[in-house]
Design a protein around this nucleic acid. Structure first.
Lengths: 376, 376
DNA sequence: CTGTGAACAGAAAACGTTTACTGCATCCAT
DNA sequence: ATGGATGCAGTAAACGTTTTCTGTTCACAG
């Protein structure tokens, strides 16, 4: 095997001059190479150091030199190259938002919060969609490591199984080693003592509020249109629903405690089936506004009035909740705040030590017109 | 004045060794510096060139060396530094989406299209919100120049006045000089022969379709809830409305041709006022679904049934259009396709010459339940 | 044996910045 | 006059890669 010569102090022999790019002739029609700090220095008749200092403004430069530099910068349309700047240590990494899909009404608000907070702190935001593909998520985390992202935000519901734990632990360690902070938004922490920030909201409490509102309005039999069992937010909301039933001494009817997906179609189908099966209920608590939308449609088709015959509460407070007929009583989730908080926490501890950090944001019941008080 | 010495061939004198960062002691609690290709080379007992070649896989490397490199990479958690890679010319720039606000239902879909197409082509997407602030837009374009973005997408409605033209021309030239491509999405090109790509959709044709549908359904007096005069999309849609009236030989009643903002509130107020003023109309064409939403609410409050008493058509086909009561007949705009096309066009001509390029995407009338045929 | 070519490894030059040193006037206090 | 600040400018190292040269080794044909 060839020995790797450890001697780094050899004379600078005049070796070949590789230089992978050649300066195009500018006349030739091909794109001109953008000008560099050296071009500016040459044109202004000063050294590159002076140009750099003029632009950074962190070191005294004579008015004469400054003026000539500025003129050269303007005439050459010079802009600093971030990569070079970053390499010499002067650029803070971007914030990366890794999300299932940006178009969902709630996720879009998380994204907006992230972008705002990042921009307020002078950072750029990268957004990447996973479309629920774990392989893609792996690839994106790896990519963000290369990008030296200051924070990597993994957003959105997840089934907290063994595979999730394993992957997330790997992410946390890998990102930490690369100087990035992993932030889980609306996801559970897979293990204690991981270098990770967790920002979540109170699914269980929100569901408790919603269900309690129905019970306090006199309803006794509340159809629950829950999300997938196994999905963290789904389980939490279900738990909140059951907490409320228990707390108010209402019976827990198994046939009213349904599960499905967070889609309009699922809400529609389950409500339709419940009505057809002749189930006895005077209220519906849908685990998301989309599900509530489906429920409203199914109830309307069945000739039932909302809130006249059946009261409905949703979860999320999507923007159009106020525009439905009737406007939807629902649980407001501070999505934008969620995004802002995630970025804030990650960047605040950017240069400090690892370790866990956990924040849970509260939810708020928004009372509109889809619930009627019933008296017995 | 000091002469800038042009002679670059002087012997490499051993000058002071600045070195702005020192390698932390790793034990010390402070973040470890991420490992570099040199660390890997040292650990694997090979040269940096071999490590680079192993990872790039574009040059023969012995199995023995490859194995040792891979082992070192794994044990050091090495990831390549993009900035260094970019500096040596190996990284393609990101796609930058500069947008008023991501949370709007239509803009979110544009963003999703952009992200998808960019990801399909192995690019990252930066998103930045301007919140309609021209100063911020200027700053962002400048920033994207520094970032060496491959494409900068400026999205969304705009008042095409002199200031807009001046700024956009400046953007186009500056970005072109930096090797980036400016793409205007849903905005008019400010001048011919600019290095710019324009992707728009057929506002006028869509409005024509919508209005024609109402006229063909027997309606004669159509209240138009237009957008701001001066805003490009607003003027276009208004023109389409008038085209249709002319084409069908329907009279143009000035009091039915209103203008306002693209908001629910504006739609609500204008419809309420029209009803109160006793205006004679049997149909409403709202220049956006949000406006239609307001109109529906105002009509309902006035005790008018949709589509029984008044028919309504919107514009945009936002996701919830199908969930309204009645579901909304509207003009579908291919927002996602808009985003995809913008990225595709920009990247396809990435290395080719400047010059203009213009694409207009079609719209499609989606017939649902908010329009009733009337016979006389 | 010796010449030839293939396969593989290493040294070092870019890439474009920032900034630690060094150096040179100039000015002011002694 | 002299010594020390002070203000400003230039030189070149370092940041972490990629890739061009320049070997060196080795197999094999002549």
């Amino acid at each position: 095997m060839t020995e790797n010569n450890g001697n780094s102090e050899r004379p600078t022999a005049r070796a070949g001059r590789p230089g992978q790019r050649k300066r195009a002739d500018a006349q030739h029609g091909a794109k001109e190479r953008p000008s560099t700090i050296r071009d500016v220095a040459r044109k202004a008749g000063v050294s590159v150091a002076t140009v750099s200092r003029t632009l950074a403004g962190n070191y005294p430069v004579s008015d004469e030199a400054r003026a000539r530099v500025m003129a050269a910068v303007a005439s050459l349309h010079y802009v600093v190259n971030v990569h070079a700047k970053a390499l010499s240590g002067q650029v803070a990494g971007p914030v990366a938002l890794v999300i299932k899909d940006i178009t969902g009404p709630s996720l879009a608000h998380v994204a907006a919060g992230v972008e705002q907070e990042a921009a307020d702190r002078g950072r750029l935001s990268l957004v990447c969609a996973t479309h629920d593909d774990a392989t893609r998520e792996d690839a994106l985390v790896q990519l963000m490591r290369e990008q030296h992202a200051a924070a990597v935000l993994l957003v959105g519901g997840v089934v907290p199984d063994a595979a999730y734990e394993r992957r997330t632990i790997g992410y946390a360690k890998a990102l930490d080693a690369a100087g990035s902070r992993l932030v889980l938004v609306g996801r559970p922490a897979p293990a204690p003592d991981l270098p990770v920030t967790v920002v979540d909201y109170d699914n269980r409490g929100g569901a408790f509020q919603a269900t309690s509102h129905l019970l306090a309005s006199g309803h006794r039999r509340v159809l629950f249109l829950g999300g997938e069992t196994g999905l963290s937010s789904g389980d939490e909301r279900r738990a909140g629903y059951r907490d409320a039933l228990r707390a108010h001494g209402a019976g827990q009817a198994e046939e009213l405690d349904t599960e499905g997906t967070y889609t309009r179609a699922s809400g529609y189908a389950r409500t339709r089936d419940a009505v057809r099966a002749g189930l006895d209920f005077t209220a519906v608590f849908a685990a998301s506004d989309m599900v509530a939308l489906g429920a409203l449609a199914a109830l309307r088709e069945a000739g039932l009035d909302v809130p006249g015959d059946v009261s409905v509460v949703g979860f999320d407070d999507v923007p159009f909740a106020t525009d439905l007929t009737p406007s939807l009583t629902t649980v407001r989730v501070p999505y934008e705040e969620l995004g802002r908080t995630a970025v804030r926490l990650a960047l605040e501890r950017e240069r400090s030590l690892g370790g866990e950090e956990h924040v849970v944001l509260g939810t708020q019941l928004v009372i509109r017109q889809s619930v009627r008080r019933v008296d017995w």
